[in-house]
């Protein structure tokens, strides 16, 4: 059952990579982060993707683990894009009292 942690780590990693990009910072955070913070977010994002890879490989072996990592990375990527596309809806929903 390495699939769920692999997906969640990939998702968290891509979310960090998303907010590490200045154009998305403006949308999601309403301000631009300092360059150092963006760098840290990017490093954190890649670290989480790396962790997801280690978790997959530890659970399924090199071969299936690598395949599963790529697969969940794709799924997490589509989920991140879907969230980014529906950002306004998500923010409205989050801002509701």
């Amino acid at each position: 059952m390495m699939h769920i942690p692999a997906l969640l780590l990939n998702l968290a990693g891509l979310a960090l990579l998303l907010v590490a990009m200045s154009k998305h910072q403006h949308d999601w955070l309403r301000r631009k982060l300092p360059a150092a913070a963006s760098r840290n977010l990017r490093a954190g994002g890649f670290t989480l993707l790396g962790l997801a890879f280690l978790v997959s490989v530890a659970g399924l072996g090199w071969l299936e683990g690598t395949l599963a990592w790529f697969g969940w990375l794709t799924v997490a990527g589509i989920a991140t894009v879907a969230a980014n596309t529906n950002r306004e809806r998500i923010q409205r929903w989050g801002a509701r009292p």
Binding site: M21, K23, T74, I78, V81, N84
Partner: peptide
């Protein structure tokens, strides 16, 4: 730069975004 970008309701631009996103996200596959 456009890794996470998918904009709906923009005609041709949306189709290009959708093509790009589906192409890039599963590119290794």
């Amino acid at each position: 730069a456009d890794f996470f970008l998918l904009r709906f309701g923009k005609g041709q631009r949306s189709w290009l975004d959708a093509h790009n996103v589906t192409a890039v996200m599963a590119l290794p596959f």
